[in-house]
Each structure stands twice: as structure tokens, then as C-alpha cells.
């Protein structure tokens, strides 16, 4: 995978702000403290950051760095102990649980490491799930879900259940589910953590396409530098603080990388234990 570094996307840096003035995400001096009875854990200690529309950001850091906590707060699954969070211009840091549920439904799309699709439920119905809670009428739900599946190239698998799909396909269904309510941001938590390296790059290809061609803002958590290299900007966390905020200079283009990669059959023939890299060991 080392040759990936040579694939550079020239336009990456100028696309960084996406051309819009208002940030989609703005964290202002956010603290998060977990009260575990006897001890208090400070997961975030004064994080401030902005993400503009059209950005593709990787949140990185070792475990315990606070990257999961920041993702939970960005995802409106958790509230900051102190500080403010503006999502799409709205202060959500003081919202009630129900209000947050509505925000998650309308403004956010989630992609998880374990896919988290409902078992024994068709891909189409899985993708429909957020529209159900948005109170959209059944015909419109199906229409949107099909459209969403088309965007990830799985329209022909609409009736399949998760158990009938490969890991990569399941993750694409999950991405389609994340897109169906036309969110302001797609949040992906280690989306390639459970996938082999080739499938991982396929997923990154979809995310890159969505970002570049459809202007979708994506925030992705990963601990793999290789994966972060496909994004436009890397935020590195350590000890609950944002330590480094840098633009990706030698950005990889997933489509190019895939072309250069051996196919699954070739790999099998070589009997290469190439599952390392982006494949396993995610936490």
C-alpha cells in the first residue's frame, strides 16, 4: 500500500472551505467530563474547531485521546459539559433529548464500524429507517431510499437482507441510510474498521465521490493514517485536546488506488496475507 502516497489530488487544498462562509460545525471551547463516581474523567479539555460545508475531515488519535467523545458530541448523541456546539448555525449544546433526536434525524447521517444494519430487514427498509422517524409518507420513503441506494451503487440489492450482502455492501447500505434524509454532515465512525484493505478503499471511493461530486460534508474517525490520507483535512487528538489540524497534502484518490491494486483473485493467487493494513484490528 505504500505506493498510495504517490497519488495526489491537486485540487484538494483549494476545495478545503467548499466556498461557503458559514461553518457547518463550530465547537467553542468544548469540555466533556465523565463522572465515574470516585474519579472524574476529562475526555475533552477545551476543544474548538470549525468544519465548513463540503469538507472531508478525518478525526484521528489513539484510544483515550477524546476522538470518540468528540464524535459523540458532533453526532448529537452526547452533550458537552461546558462550551458550545453550533450545528448548521444552530446552538445544539443545550437541547433536550427529543430535540437532539430530531436534529440527528434531519441534519446528521451515521456510518458505524459494525455497519449496525437491522438484521432480517431488507436493504431498502434499512435505508428507509431514518425517513420513518422523519414522518415521511411511505411512497416517498421508498422513493428516497431507492435514490439513496442508487448513490452507493446498490439499487439492485434493495431486497437483500444484510446476511445476504458482503461486508462492503453492508457498509454501503449503511452509507445510503446515512444519506437518505439529506443530512448536513455524514459522520463515519471507523467505517473501514471491519473491512479488508481493498473493500476499505472501495468505501473511501464512495465517500470521496459523495464529497467531491455532491458536496457532502463528511467527518470520519479513524486511527489509520492510510485511510486519513484519502480525506482533505486531518484533526489529531491527544489527551482530550486538538493537537494538530492540518490539510492533507498528498491526498490519495481512491479510484486511482483501486486501479493500481491487485484484484481479490490475484491476491488469493499470490496467497498474500494482505489483510494487514486497513483490514483488521480496529477498536
Amino acid at each position: 500500500m505504500m505506493n498510495m502516497a504517490e497519488q495526489i489530488l491537486p485540487a484538494a487544498e483549494m476545495e478545503r472551505t467548499g466556498g461557503k462562509g458559514e461553518p457547518v460545525i463550530r465547537l467553542e471551547n468544548v469540555y466533556k467530563t465523565y463522572d465515574l463516581g470516585e474519579i472524574q474523567v476529562q475526555a475533552l479539555r477545551g476543544v474548538s474547531l470549525e468544519v465548513m460545508a463540503g469538507e472531508f475531515v478525518a478525526v484521528m488519535g489513539p484510544s483515550g485521546s477524546g476522538k470518540s467523545t468528540v464524535m459523540n458530541i458532533l453526532g448529537c448523541l452526547d452533550r458537552p459539559t461546558k462550551g458550545r456546539y453550533f450545528l448548521d448555525g444552530v446552538d445544539v449544546s443545550g437541547m433536550s433529548k427529543d430535540e437532539l433526536a430530531r436534529i440527528r434525524n434531519k441534519k446528521l447521517g451515521f456510518v458505524f464500524q459494525q455497519f449496525n444494519l437491522l438484521s432480517r430487514t431488507s436493504a431498502l427498509e434499512n435505508v428507509e429507517l431514518p425517513t420513518v422517524y422523519a414522518g415521511i409518507k411511505p411512497e416517498e420513503r421508498t422513493r428516497r431510499a431507492m435514490e439513496s441506494l442508487r448513490r452507493v451503487g446498490l439499487a439492485d440489492r434493495a431486497g437483500h437482507h444484510p446476511s445476504q450482502l458482503s461486508g462492503g455492501q453492508q457498509q454501503r447500505v449503511a452509507i445510503a441510510r446515512g444519506l437518505v434524509n439529506q443530512p448536513a454532515i455524514l459522520l463515519a465512525d471507523e467505517p473501514t474498521g471491519n473491512l479488508d484493505s481493498r473493500t476499505s478503499i472501495e468505501i473511501m471511493e464512495i465517500l470521496q465521490t459523495l464529497n467531491e461530486e455532491q458536496g457532502l460534508t463528511i467527518v470520519l474517525v479513524t486511527h489509520e493514517p492510510d485511510i486519513a490520507q484519502f480525506t482533505k483535512r486531518n484533526l489529531e487528538f491527544r489527551d482530550g485536546k486538538l493537537k494538530r489540524d492540518r490539510l492533507v497534502e498528498e491526498r490519495l484518490n481512491a479510484r486511482e488506488v483501486l486501479k493500481a491494486m491487485p484484484t481479490a483473485e490475484e491476491e488469493a493467487a499470490e496467497d498474500a496475507g494482505a489483510a494487514g493494513g486497513a483490514g483488521t484490528g480496529a477498536g
Partner: peptide
């Protein structure tokens, strides 16, 4: 539990 988590993440309220 996981299913409930997913539903909540995609917008199910407590009432739902």
C-alpha cells in the same frame, strides 16, 4: 439493545 441504539442514532425519540 444495538437495534435501539441505531434507531435512536437515526432519529427515534424516547417516545418512539
Amino acid at each position: 439493545t444495538r437495534e435501539i441504539g441505531v434507531r435512536m442514532a437515526v432519529g427515534a425519540t424516547e417516545k418512539d
